[in-house]
Design a protein around this nucleic acid. Sequence first.
DNA 1: CTTAACAATAACGTATACATTAACGTATGC
DNA 2: GCATACGTTAATGTATACGTTATTGTTAAG
Lengths: 219, 219
Amino acid sequence: MGKSQTGQALERLREMVFSGDLPPDSNHYEADLADQLGMSRTPVREAALTMQAQGLVEVQPRRGVRILPISSEDMADIYDVLCELESLAAQRAAEIGYAKEDLQVAQDCIDEMDAALSKQDRNLWAKADDRFHTELVRLGGNKRVVEVVARYSDQVRRARMMTLPLRPLPVKSNEDHRAVLCAIERGDAQQAKDVHRAHRVEARTLLTNLIREFGLRRL
Amino acid sequence: MGKSQTGQALERLREMVFSGDLPPDSNHYEADLADQLGMSRTPVREAALTMQAQGLVEVQPRRGVRILPISSEDMADIYDVLCELESLAAQRAAEIGYAKEDLQVAQDCIDEMDAALSKQDRNLWAKADDRFHTELVRLGGNKRVVEVVARYSDQVRRARMMTLPLRPLPVKSNEDHRAVLCAIERGDAQQAKDVHRAHRVEARTLLTNLIREFGLRRL
DNA sequence: CTTAACAATAACGTATACATTAACGTATGC
DNA sequence: GCATACGTTAATGTATACGTTATTGTTAAG
C-alpha cells in the first residue's frame, strides 16, 4: 500500500491530520488536496473514504473532506474503550507468561521514556509512550484489540499532541508502566490488569479535565 | 449514502457477504461485481475499500475482493472485545438510571425473543437478540462502544447465522437478558455488568466450541 | 522431465471526462 | 423591502479509457 498513489495519499493525509496541518473542523475539496499531493482526485478520494471508515474525517457532498474534531466527550468515550481493552491486554499478557526477553521491546520503551523525562522532552516521551502501549496490546495476543486500540489512538493522537505542553511531566506514568511490566513478568494477571486500568483511568481524567479547564475547542 | 451508487454498492455487497452469497474466502473481480450490481467499477471499488477498512474484505491486486473468513480464533478474539465493551455498556446504563419507559425497546426485544423461542424460530430469535444487544449498548451512552460493537457484530454475523441451526434453543440466554435489564432498571451497575459479562463469556465458549467441534472451515 | 525466460493476458491503479446536483447570487414580482 | 423562482456555478459522483504490472502459459534449453 505504501507505493501506490492511494497508499501515499492515505499516509500523507493521515500525517496532515495528525500534525494539525489540516486543522480539526476544517473542510477541504478533493481537487485542492489532489493538487497539494500532486496526483489526481481518484487516489485522494479513495484515501478519504478509507479515512472516513477509520473515523478520522467525514466526506460530504459539496463540503469536501471535513477533519473530525475531538470533544471532551469523545475523549472520555475513547479512553473508556482504551481502558477496558488495554487492561484486558495486560491481563492476557500476564496469563500467557512471557519470558523476560519477550518483554525487551516494552522494557526499551520504558527506558526511552525515562531518558526523555530526564531531558524534559515531552515529544520524545509521547512517542515512546505510544510505542509502549502498542507493544503492550500486541503482547495481549488479541488482534481485534490491537486494531481497536490503534484506531482510537489515531483519533486522539492530534489532541494528545496539542495538550502535551499543558501536562505536568508524566513521572507517575512511568512508575505505572514499570509496575505493569513487572506484573506481566511475574505472571500476576490480576495485578497487571488493575494497575493498567488505574493508569488509563488517570489518563482519561487528566485529558478530559485539561480540555475542559482550558476550554479547548477544535481539537 | 443510501441513494448514491457507492451507497447502494456498500449496502448490497454487505448483504451479499452476510448472507453467504459471496462465500467466505472467495475472490471476486471488481468488474464482475460491477456487472452483477449493474454499475461501473468506480462505486464498487469505493465500497470495497470501505468494507476493507471495516474488516469485512481484503482488496488485493489481481486477486480481486476477498471475503474474509472467520476462524475460531477470530471468534474468540471478537467475543473477548464484545464481552468487555458490552458489559461496560450494561454497567453504564445502570449507572445512568433509566426510567422504565426508556427501557421499553429492550423489553420489546426480549418479548420478541420469547415469542420466537416458543415458535422455535431461531432466525427470528437471532434478529431480536441482535437488536437487544445493539439497544443495550446504545443505552450505555458511549458512541465508540456502539461503533466497535456494531463493527464486530458485522464481522461475526455470517458465522452466527450459519451456526444457528447447530445450537441448542437459547432458553438460558433469555433469562440472562431479563436479568440484565432488571439490574439496569434497579440501577444495580455491578450486577448488570457481571451478569452480562457472564452471558457473553458463555456465548464465546459456545460459538468457539461449535466451530471447533464441527470442524467448520470457511465461516 | 524440469526449469527458466519470455510473451500474452487480464485485472488493477489512476487520470480524465462528463453528468449530476446542491448552493449561491440575481432578478423579478409583490 | 422581502421573498421566491430561476439560472449559474462549482464540486461531487460516476463512467470510461489507458498505462502498468502480476500472472499464466508456452517454449526452448539444459
